[in-house]
Amino acid sequence: MLKLRFRNEKDTYDESIVEHDIEKLFFATTIEKNDLTVRLLKQIENAEYVSSSKYRDRFGIVLSISDLSTGTKAALCVQYHTDRIIDLVECGFNAIDAILENCKDGCVLDSEHTTACYSAEGDISVELDGKEFTSIDALNEYIMER
């Protein structure tokens, strides 16, 4: 289950294992080809996995994996560093939605939501406040009412 925590609720997570600098964490990560990696690259970047050091971008150009957006890097880090808390502060809404839709493990830190929440689609597996959510509507409703 993907754990969701909010940055301002510091008593709900261990700050010592939060990764704030996604570029640094990604730089230390070897990206292998698996279903999740392929889906995340496609969904966020409209890109394809080529190798652990390269990907093919939306224009068909092969680029270094370091040229991926920070949002995509964060999504991949969620998969590869399930023992850390990945700070999504540099992620766009589309990357966050892709993480919620596709990542079923790990822990992420997001900004507190006061208005519109997530737009992810499909089944999710997210834990917040000890409760499990399998639909985005139920998660959004809970967040707005808590």
Partner: peptide
């Protein structure tokens, strides 16, 4: 820039 990932911001920066 809009709050969306993978739009080309980092490419523009580089």
């Amino acid at each position: 820039f809009s709050n969306e990932s993978a739009t080309g911001k980092t490419r523009l920066f580089k």
